[in-house]
Design a protein around this nucleic acid. Structure first.
Lengths: 326, 326
DNA sequence: CTGAAAGCGCTTACAG
DNA sequence: CTGAAAGCGCTTACAG
């Protein structure tokens, strides 16, 4: 299927078909209509040029429960722009490292990276003129690196205020590693306590990993103390699942004996027993915003702001209640 | 960046560079090495031809909890073949329906469709010579349509045998709509009962939707009967979540008062209380197999078998126990 | 092994 | 508005 063939079918010259295909002027409406009809009929598409019609969405690992939400958010705006979404996994930090090269070789319109992008990788993309946006960055980035995140600090604050409002005073926080977003969530907790005139007790803050197992371990220890906390706020939902398990083993009922608030609002958390109150991260919206931003960068638009945070909201379910009289 | 430029840098002619790029013979090792070095150094890639380096993975809706596993499975083999994975959502059955055309326009090497592909859509793809594989088909397909599924019948049989082995006699099944895979799971259940000399009691089989709410409703009714079943097998995990909820409300403990077996083995089911015994669908393996199949079809290989089912396995956790003496 | 020449699919500049 | 001609990036067939 060549334009020569289309030209012949339409009884016009090759340059005329070329003009129609490229939306150039200098073709009569009638001729244009006839040629367009033939192009459609034969399903002719011009061979993709140097730049593809693709957004590349890169995950470090594709196992998190968030992944689907993120993909959906990207898909939504890509679809509107008639652009395809290419999903690729890790390799970014591999030393075997063909992956960033693969990505570059695919010449995507832009790349969206979930969680990180090393300086070298950013350099590679920049050298090829491929714009990128970092999604939910885990580390501080230079000022000129575009990113989209969530309002983690405000989320931590909202969760803690909710517990304080219920009457809790001994509120523990199980937090995560030194990632930017964990620090922000922790700081939101601290700041809500301060605002209520409560001290941040170092004994009530545990820094651990963001897994169910680590949440479980931390909660076992915290809840075995004589002056155990009456509420626990965790840095993510998986940790909260671990807290539930520890509470169960210790014969503590949620929320009667212990209030729990998570962070992320992963779908599965709505069917726990009891359903978990948690800070909702609007992953799909964040992903859509990141895609819009990356596409705008790809169009060469000059943007005043190059990073943004989308608001989190507290999803109230059944894992929190006032503390029992003691 | 043109091959003419590479040729000049390397001090050779344009045809020589062309040969190196296309792995043709007739170039000395020394020249080849020099040219390859320059190609790499300048990051030259040949412009994509009529056929892209993409597998397109089409979802009807991207919200199921399986999606990530499927994407990972596809990604794994695509990556090995240095092919990108393009994920697209629905629109396939839209009447606005630009989507199948978008897909065709992207000229993927092959398409993998999760759940369905209408006859018209199959026709469109065939007309363009784009091979496709249907993943986990929900309806009977003509014999020449390639598909990859799971051994649903054997899964239903294994789940039921497990319950029978534990001593259960009144085993209910909450099944789903008339989809091929639901029918197979149900039939596995029936056949395991028959094999143990037990009749299939129509009263113990509920046909409903594959959601948590429908599982809950069905279980409420089933468990409120005077001669309530001592075990329930559900057609998917979401229904089993609903069964847990109904049992809780009715003061029935799992597994002491009621054994529950699900189907799918979605990740979240491992942290339920108690962790759910369920039939594992090897989604990632199925997806990898489907991708291999589609790619083989794309290479024009003649395949003797054009459909296959990957084995399910029963994942034993803590939701089943022998029935209490009655 | 190498590259001049011809050719392919497409676009652009321009004469009619 | 139309298309002959020149040109571009690439490949192929072939002479040396």
């Amino acid at each position: 299927m060549t334009i020569a063939y289309i030209a012949e079918s339409a009884g016009v010259s090759v340059p005329t078909v070329s003009k129609v295909l490229n939306g150039r002027s200098g073709v009569s409406d009638e001729t244009r209509a006839r040629v367009e009809q033939l192009i459609h009929q034969h399903g002719y598409r011009k061979p993709p040029k140097n730049r593809s019609n693709l957004v590349e969405l890169v995950f470090r690992e594709l196992e998190s429960m968030w992944a689907v939400e993120i993909i959906r958010g990207v898909e939504r705006v890509a679809r509107k722009n008639r652009i395809g979404v290419l999903v690729s996994e890790f390799g970014l930090h591999d030393t075997s490292g063909t992956t960033i090269e693969d990505t570059v070789g695919r010449r995507p319109r832009c790349v969206l990276s979930v969680a990180q992008l090393s300086e070298a990788e950013r350099g590679q993309l920049r050298a090829r003129g491929i714009p990128f946006v970092v999604f939910d960055p885990i580390e501080e980035l230079p000022d000129d690196v575009p990113f989209v995140g969530a309002t983690n600090w405000r989320g931590g604050q909202a969760a803690t205020r909710h517990l304080i409002g219920l009457g809790h005073r001994r509120i523990a926080m199980i937090s995560g590693p030194d990632h930017a977003f964990c620090l922000a969530r922790l700081s939101g907790y601290t700041s809500a306590l301060a605002e209520a005139g409560l001290p941040t007790e170092p004994r009530l803050v545990v820094r651990t990993q963001l897994t169910r197992e680590h949440g479980y371990e931390a909660a076992r220890e915290l809840l075995s103390r004589p002056d155990r906390p009456t509420a626990v706020f965790t840095a993510n939902d998986m940790q909260a699942v671990g807290v539930y398990q520890a509470a169960r083993e210790l014969g503590l009922r949620v929320p009667d004996d212990l209030s729990v608030v998570g962070f992320d609002d992963v779908p599965a958390v709505a069917w726990m027993d009891p359903p978990l109150t948690t800070v909702h991260q609007p992953l799909a919206e964040m992903a859509s915003a990141a895609t819009e931003l990356a596409l705008a960068l790809g169009r060469g638009e000059e943007l005043s702001q190059v990073g943004l945070e989308i608001a989190t909201t507290l999803t109230l379910r059944e894992s929190t209640a006032p503390p029992k009289e003691q």
